[in-house]
Design a binder for these strands. Structure first.
Lengths: 224, 224
DNA sequence: GTAAATATGTGATGTATATCACATATCAAC
DNA sequence: GTTGATATGTGATATACATCACATATTTAC
């Protein structure tokens, strides 16, 4: 059973809560485990809970005007999902899918709002969280259009290698199609980009297993 | 001289402040007028103030990995600029330029943070503001890649016509280059797109003056 | 284990749009 | 007004990528 008081990976925001407030949180909190590829949240469905990724890895995506899903973000443990929606939208503005076996805490909308009103530190931490996230999107938005496919693909691999797994030998839990949706391309172009990198001896790939042999080359290519 | 107590266009956030808090705000608030094309905020400069657009129109842009400026947003009166940066970044993450004669209130970082800590309603309104803004970016990010130039250009014209000026006969205070930076394209492609629309009798354009003859056609094209 | 579904790789081809080059128009400064 | 700077329009050309088509591999379901 979940216990927010002893939760190891609780957010900076939750750290600001006093015992009484923690009880409010715990009373409206439910923990669920998801298998890889399982849906955590679905775009268009009435939003009733905020999700907090306790462990695992997840992917946030959104449908565009042509109905094609685009990946907005890969979410790592210790992050909220759906904050943007919950505070004043009625339906979820995006979908969330588990990429690895993941544990998610669902918190009731109303109780969460109650905590924001009660505790300024809490609100402040959330504000800081959302702002930081937004700056990342700015960065991504601006760069995506100034990089070619190889550059974006290099960034993707580096992100998983350096930021998420901190290893040069990793398994990227995405299909080629997911990767395409993440870097705004197509599965064919992703495959070709991977082939290019492989032929130049920059990476070695077997299925989803990526071995990065020359990370410095990727950093270079990411500037293209 | 500015007076936050009698300010007509003050933000929902400021509306939550009590007289004492309003005094804090007024004490750290300075109003400045900008001419069209004048720089309001510059990327990379130490951030010391939050800006609030009281009147006029402004444009937020950011440099990408190749050093090219991309327009993130057109800012209308009644909106904050730089919130994201101010709360925990040391330097401005983007530039802001006036598009029309604009009046901007600059608020001292520290006093602003102080208000967030003192007043939960205030923090809550800001959180709501940032979240709403972020959802807009999601929308834009996802759509930009699923529309062609004409679709994006149609959206640009409709945005100025319907959202900003509420008229079919408008002056868009952007150069063709600005428009390109806004819709992730080039000035040449923008010119060609405008020519296409003109030839089809959808719009009539003289310089920056746009007369929208068939808005419904633009709506249709925006889905491309 | 077998069959069906899903994912992946790769060549051939098409196309949207960037880039280049230059003419013309508009704006700003003196 | 004149001059230089900046902005705009437009054809020709190049090119990065998407799209299509199909072969093969891998996963999932029964």
């Amino acid at each position: 059973m979940q216990n927010c008081k002893t939760c190891i990976i609780r957010s900076k925001a939750v750290n600001t809560l006093n015992p009484k407030e923690l009880n409010i949180l715990m009373g409206s909190c439910a923990e669920t485990t998801f298998s890889p590829r399982e849906s955590i949240m679905k775009e268009g469905i009435l939003s009733s809970h905020i999700a907090y990724l306790k462990s695992g890895l997840a992917m946030v995506s959104k449908k565009g005007s042509k109905g094609i899903d685009q990946v907005l973000k890969i979410v790592e443990p210790g992050n909220y999902v759906g904050l943007q929606t919950v505070l004043f939208e009625k339906v979820n503005q995006f979908s969330v899918m588990a990429l690895e076996k993941s544990v998610v805490c669902f918190m009731d909308n109303q109780s969460f709002k109650e905590l924001i009103k009660r505790n300024t530190e809490f609100a402040n931490e959330l504000l800081s969280f959302v702002c930081r996230e937004e700056l990342n999107y700015f960065e991504r938005f601006v760069n995506t259009h100034q990089q070619n496919i190889n550059g974006r693909m290099a960034d993707l691999i580096l992100h998983f290698s350096e930021k998420i797994y901190q290893s040069n030998n990793i398994e990227i839990p995405l299909t080629r199609g997911d990767m395409a949706a993440l870097i705004c391309s197509t599965r064919e172009s992703v495959a070709r980009s991977i082939r290019d990198f492989t032929q130049e001896g920059i990476i070695k790939v077997i299925g989803k297993q990526f071995n990065i042999l020359k990370p410095e080359k990727l950093t270079e290519i990411s500037k293209e």
